[in-house]
């Protein structure tokens, strides 16, 4: 009974995004009935996987009351680092992936500590980190990325399990996306997850309950750094190395999280809905492709979505008036 009610509540809070997802798919079906063949659906999911993974990471940060604007630059940096360090040598793949993981964790840790210990607003901290990463990578590579990714490195983003009956190929990216998604959902059901969301809802109450608010918020940035690392592997594999990898991704992923009904400022929203928001955005872009709308329209659409979603959430929050307490005396 309570399980059903909990699901109901979850859908009620974030129902809009699932509805939007369904409507977008329906529109795609109308425009291009052939889209819902297994190969093209799999291709869609493979392409959407990095954004979903990033949305999971961003969700932790946003729900705890912060932003992480550095993820796009981090994805770019990771791809460039990978190409430079691997330089086409297969045997370096795993060690370099570990270096990337350490780098992602390090960036998250720095973001988190600057935000919580130095009390710099995360918006500024991570904007600074974005610029630092962007500049450092260009300085290091002299403007154009050098080196090459290995075949093994590109496998997760590009290939999959082949020969599956009915479906054909199941992309590794899809499996990684599902694993990350399940991990995020499960993590939010732990004590850590509950304290994280409580810290975003009412920092003072969480602190006075003994919560280590700074520690969980820093951990959220680290999770975001890890998710950017995974997304970097997927995007690098899928699209290869270029100087533009990851650009603007931070805004796409924040749009996705907001579209999923996660409140900016923290305290409300589910990881599932945040990831559904990422799928919905990818679906919208796919729809635009199908309708042969120019890709240059994307930023404008993204901007409109983020404003509309936040305005909608603000209206919803205003409606149930809080209980009046005592009369002023």
């Amino acid at each position: 009974m309570t399980r059903v009610r909990a699901l109901g509540a979850a859908l009620q809070g974030a129902g809009t995004v699932f509805l939007l997802l369904a409507l977008t798919f329906a529109a795609i079906a109308v425009v291009n009935p052939g889209f819902f063949e297994a190969p093209s659906v799999m291709a869609f999911l493979k392409q959407a996987a990095p954004l979903v993974v990033l949305a999971a990471g961003q969700y932790f940060v946003v729900v705890s009351g912060n932003f992480d604007l550095s993820v796009g630059a981090l994805v770019g940096a990771q791809v460039v680092i990978a190409a430079r360090l691997i330089d086409g040598v297969e045997s370096r793949t795993v060690p370099v992936m570990l270096v990337m993981l350490a780098f992602g964790i390090g960036v998250g840790l720095v973001n988190g500590l600057i935000t919580t210990v130095l009390k710099v607003q995360s918006f500024i901290t991570t904007l600074g980190m974005l610029l630092v990463l962007y500049g450092a990578i260009r300085l290091w590579t002299g403007g154009a990325p050098t080196g090459d990714l290995s075949e093994a490195f590109r496998t997760p983003g590009r290939l999959g399990i082949t020969g599956v009956p009915l479906i054909g190929q199941i992309p590794w990216a899809l499996l990684i996306m599902l694993a990350v998604g399940a991990g995020a959902i499960l993590l939010m059901r732990t004590r850590f997850g509950r304290i994280l969301i409580a810290s975003g809802d009412n920092e003072l109450a969480a602190r006075l309950s003994g919560a280590r608010v700074d520690a969980v918020r820093t951990a959220a940035f680290v999770l975001s750094g890890i998710s950017a690392t995974i997304a970097g592997v997927l995007i690098g594999g899928f699209a290869g190395v270029s100087a533009q990898v990851g650009e603007g991704l931070e805004f796409t992923v924040i749009t996705a999280v907001v579209l999923g009904g996660v409140a900016l400022g923290g305290g409300r929203g589910t990881a599932l809905a945040a990831m559904a928001g990422a799928l919905a955005i990818e679906a919208l872009f796919t729809l635009f492709n199908q309708m042969a709308l120019p890709a240059t329209l994307r930023p404008a659409v993204q901007g409109a979505i983020i404003i509309a979603a936040v305005a909608y959430a603000a209206r919803r929050r205003l409606r149930p008036a809080p209980q009046p307490t005592a009369a002023p005396s």
Binding site: A198, S209, T325
Partner: peptide, 23 residues
């Protein structure tokens, strides 16, 4: 209680177990 005691947008249960969760 609103400013210092409760995470208002969380459930009754999440609030009631907050001290246990946090410590």
């Amino acid at each position: 209680r609103k400013a210092q005691g409760l995470a208002l947008r969380q459930s009754v249960k999440a609030n009631a177990r907050m001290v246990l969760d946090a410590n």
